[in-house]
Amino acid sequence: MDQQVMDSGQIERIRNNPKYQELVSKRSRFAWILSIIMLVMYYAFILVIAFSPASLGAPIAKGSVITIGIPVGALIIVGAFILTGIYVRRANGEFDELTRQIKEEAK
């Protein structure tokens, strides 16, 4: 083991703090939901390309050369960025505040 971090009393206090439980369950749920949204977006895109490439090849409007695939692709890129923004916003606000309180109470 590389490092000794906290004494066992402190570990005990943090573990029994309901705010700690709240932080862990809220954050991990949030992180997994966002990860799944990202993966579903990506693999849905891939599956459409696999099974129905023509639907992404359809023009966005009658007479246009631009295909639906182009804005969809751009939206996935922008969507990835927005998802990271959503996570950072909540984590740097709500979760960090909870963490601060837990640290305070563990002293």
Binding site: G73, I77, V88
Partner: peptide, 21 residues
């Protein structure tokens, strides 16, 4: 053409997951 964009998207989608997890 378009296939190049599919490649870029594959390169990008790992990042949000790295952030979340």
């Amino acid at each position: 053409g378009y296939d190049g964009l599919i490649y870029s998207i594959g390169f990008l989608v790992g990042w949000p997951v790295i952030l979340f997890l």
